[in-house]
């Protein structure tokens, strides 16, 4: 599951953020702010992830500081999917 989620999240980030490096070159734990992600583009990514995975982020979690790495998005989505899946 992990690999698929990661690929889809990377695709979403690439589509929604004006990155200064191709997303393939960014590591999962790299700070995305160094590559052009900002608070507003983070929300764009969140909205796209919600649509893609059919999940909803908690209001309190809609904080730029919570999602500064690709792995933080992956963990959040996997946890949400895990809760939904039987």
């Amino acid at each position: 599951m992990g690999n698929k989620v990661e690929l889809r999240i990377r695709e979403i980030i690439s589509k929604n953020v004006e990155l200064t490096l191709p997303v393939e070159k960014i590591g999962n734990t790299d700070d995305l702010t160094a590559f052009g992600i900002k608070s507003i583009s983070t929300i764009k990514v969140i909205v796209a992830i919600e649509l893609e995975f059919g999940i909803e982020f908690e209001d309190e979690d809609l904080n730029f500081g919570n999602f500064r790495t690709i792995s933080s998005f992956i963990s959040y989505v996997e946890e949400k999917i895990g809760k939904i899946s039987p």
């Binding site: 919600e50 649509l51 209001d59 309190e60 904080n63 730029f64």
Partner: peptide, 17 residues
């Protein structure tokens, strides 16, 4: 400020979605 951040994020989410 943190609470306003949540409000601003929700507002952006509303506009994007």
């Amino acid at each position: 400020g943190g609470k306003w951040t949540t409000i601003a994020s929700m507002m952006h989410k509303a506009f994007f979605s």
